[in-house]
């Protein structure tokens, strides 16, 4: 086989404007990181809320929250993305306004909302598991001191639960970066999409794919290091589970 390796391809000027192919890659990386972080923030807030609702006394609230989790867990991410992007703007009020945004914004918003909801269901399960793993007496003790139920969650249950679930949350955080590349299917120019574009324009598939793959691995490594640091900081002295 005869393949002409040419790593300098990244420095060549891309067809659009005065950017190089390297600039394309970096802008793709930027979109991937921005999208993942925005969706992660959404997933954490929604996930904490739904996770809490699954543990509050009262059957109907718990059932509603459980249904939420099941819906987002049992439909493929790609199908959810297409539904957010192609279907909901057609059938929801406000869809017409959405379709008047510039395409890049539409893609980004749909991708963020999709990843945010998808991941929030997983975060919610972790939050619920974390809260349920706490001794039952913790809730009773907080209530007995006169804290209201929201205060009990805010000051006692959630701070402990989140400390316990740092490791599983880390893998969800990693997943959101990996899942973000599904969004290339609706035309969002994130890292994977830029990599494919590069293949189309340069006919140097190996260089491009190797670069994209390495960038994902780098993201993975950075997130892992950051979360390990967080885990160390969140450790509660003398508590079981802190090694």
């Amino acid at each position: 086989m005869s393949y002409h390796w040419n790593w300098s391809v990244f420095l060549q000027p891309a067809p659009s404007g005065d950017a190089t192919y390297l600039d394309w890659m970096l802008s793709g990386l930027q979109v991937t990181v921005a999208l993942s972080l925005a969706a992660w923030a959404m997933a954490l807030i929604l996930g904490a809320l739904i996770g809490v609702l699954r543990t509050v006394p009262g059957k109907s609230i718990g059932r509603g929250a459980a249904a939420y989790v099941e819906v987002f867990r049992n439909i493929p991410l790609l199908a959810q993305l297409f539904i957010w992007y192609f279907v909901l703007p057609e059938i929801l009020p406000g869809g017409t306004e959405f379709k008047q945004l510039n395409p890049m914004a539409q893609q980004f918003v749909a991708a963020m909302v999709c990843l945010g909801f998808f991941t929030s269901a997983r975060v919610a399960e972790q939050v619920r598991a974390g809260i349920e793993s706490l001794p039952r007496g913790q809730r009773a003790a907080a209530l007995a001191l006169g804290l209201t139920t929201p205060q009990t969650y805010r000051y006692v249950l959630l701070p402990m639960a989140f400390r316990i679930i740092v490791p599983p949350l880390t893998s969800e955080f990693l997943n959101i970066f990996k899942n973000s590349c599904v969004c290339s299917t609706i035309g969002l120019l994130e890292l994977t999409a830029q990599g494919r574009q590069l293949v189309d324009y340069t006919a140097q598939p190996y260089e491009s794919f190797i670069a994209v793959t390495l960038l994902y691995m780098a993201i993975n490594a950075v997130v892992m290091l950051l979360m390990r640091e967080l885990e160390k900081r969140a450790r509660v002295p003398g508590h079981i589970g802190s090694r």
Partner: peptide, 21 residues
């Protein structure tokens, strides 16, 4: 208002239930 009532009634538990964090 149960919270207000509980604030005036102290309670001590079998497993202490201090907040570990």
């Amino acid at each position: 208002n149960l919270s207000r009532l509980r604030a005036r009634v102290g309670m001590v538990f079998q497993h202490f239930e201090l907040f570990p964090h």
